[in-house]
Nucleic acid binder design. Structure first.
Lengths: 194, 194, 194, 194
DNA sequence: CATGAATGAGACTTCATTCAT
DNA sequence: TATGAATGAAGTCTCATTCAT
């Protein structure tokens, strides 16, 4: 986000908000410009193409994921606790930014443009790698079962996180994501703990 | 699908195909009619609105889920084996019908119409209930751990199934879904088995 | 109407009804066929073109006007009473057939086809001629003022009749046409009586 | 019309022209844009919906009626003369703007939209009220017969005005509206004068 | 930290009509 | 006393984008 001007950031956040509201179809230049309070063509001063705005959205996601990862590693050096913190923080972040939650797991939105789908793929991979790394550390310390491949454990953790957020979103945020997320984490933890 | 005429089924399948190719944006009346080989307006003899075609797509999904569920229960009466079969069959079905896979987990596509999102929700719920039921049976027979709530176990199973399919799709079907799916299942099985 | 088959009459009446409901735009082959209970193409067995149905509507009007005229002349031989009866009967007929009222003064509907607009013109002229004739008779008997041209008196009578019906229709039939019509007639009568 | 931009006024006038030519069916976005000399979608910058153009047309009517009313009251303070002037001016205006005449009495055109039909109703009512007021003034000064209700006199005046314009229009403007209108007014005047 | 006008492509949908059965 | 399928033209409207100011 450091590469983006203030105005650009404003536009990106507005875009996330719009998508959150009614899906990607809600993200039109017209609606976006209305939300910002300028005329349509004014947006083109800040982004040459609509897809550059989507690219900006992905940049927000990436940055956020990285920030959480660093925070987690700073807080504790016990891998299992780091993983737990990772989960908890994600849920907290999504609770506070439902719009982001609304977009972050909807990869389909980015399928049509190769730049976009590539970036989605890259973010996913990086994130996965980080979780795998934490799991492996946990296994080394004998905190996490060693009879299961770290990649698969990581995969299962990530999948559960993703689905709970998706369901929360489809339920229109009617249940407490922090609470339900915590429960799921606890079940997962008991499954993988030694 | 029994409520649909031959021509309607044909249209629904063509629609699934189009969506699979490039996402929901690819599903336009024009492209759909071209694929069928008629003029645009001809489609309206078979479906009054575009959304009725989407409704038809969901009907295909529901029917398929129900069919698999019944087949699974017919094959074995050991819950854990039923669950495994459920997984394996799903992967097999998706391998053979990537187009369906492409749509089935993209709930966002159906968000804008209340009829559609309601049907999506209903299908999800029914499916979840069935898995929970199987897990409970497994717990009764002491095949599955009892120290974890059946709903949560079911949730985790479903989430993994869903993510592996999603990744396969995003990877443009470049890995073998049956194989990877089987691996994931085995990990999951070891996690929940007693 | 004698030239029309039973089915054709049925279609014509249904068409009048549809137009009454929401204007000429409501008269589509689809809606008409639904109302009749057949499939669209079935209508073409009875009328080669849509405009032939409109022609049929006009035939209903003409026939009705002629019938009222004859009834009126049979009832009395005092011109002023004949004119009053003409008014009263028209209002009664429209009260009972609002659909007809809805179409009969909407000449614009028939503007686009020369056959249609010609027939509208002809009906109007015939009707006018009849009223003028009655007024002239009234003048001859010294019942009606002679200082005003019969054509103009007739014109004024017709115009009032027409507007009261139009207003009744625009008011969605919320006032009693018979009553208001009678009042207007009485005012008119006092204006033209000797 | 002060609420409309120059371009909007231009569009409204073009729309009136088109309707005059062949009825409301002639008013399509395509034809309208061609007449203006832009592409179809360009119109939507100036009016969000087609019906907003129709609303604009009605605004023209209302404004014109009000202008005439004020002019008439400025010219004379004898009610009967004011009424005569009202008639004459209307005929003059229509003679010069046949397109407007073509639309102003075709209330059916506006039936389908509640905003439109409401505005039509309001214009009609205001106009009627003004005429009634003039008639009442005439009665107070003993210029107009008192044995007839003012509302009914006003109604009859308005109805005649309306029908003569309609006939002129249906006759495709082949007679002189000013002349015929004047004749009708004179007959009416003799009917209502004391 | 922009506005106003326009463009061209394309979206969904409706309509009258035809034709084989 | 008809049905089912299709057609082609047209209609309203939306969208991303461009360009002159």
């Amino acid at each position: 986000m450091k590469n983006y001007t203030k105005r650009q950031k404003e536009i990106i956040l507005a875009a996330i908000d719009l998508i959150a509201k009614n899906g990607i179809q809600e993200l039109t230049i017209k609606k976006l410009s209305q939300k910002i309070g300028v005329v349509e063509s004014a947006l083109y001063r800040h982004f040459p193409k609509k897809q550059d705005i989507l690219l900006g959205i992905l940049a927000v996601f990436r940055e956020n994921k990285e920030a959480i990862l660093q925070a987690v590693q700073a807080e504790s050096d016990v891998p299992l606790e780091q993983l737990r913190a990772l989960f908890i923080k994600r849920f907290k972040y999504f609770s506070e930014h439902p719009a982001v939650a609304s977009v972050i797991f909807a990869e389909d939105l980015f399928r049509n443009d190769s730049r976009l789908s590539q970036m989605v793929y890259e973010i996913m991979k990086t994130n996965q790698a980080a979780i795998i790394h934490l799991v492996e550390n946990g296994q080394k310390r004998d905190d996490i079962r060693k009879d299961l491949p770290a990649t698969q454990i990581a995969f299962i953790l990530a999948s559960a996180l993703r689905l709970i957020v998706t369901q929360w979103r489809l339920a229109e945020y009617r249940f407490d994501l922090n609470e339900e997320g915590k429960k799921i984490w606890e079940t997962l933890e008991r499954m993988v703990k030694n």
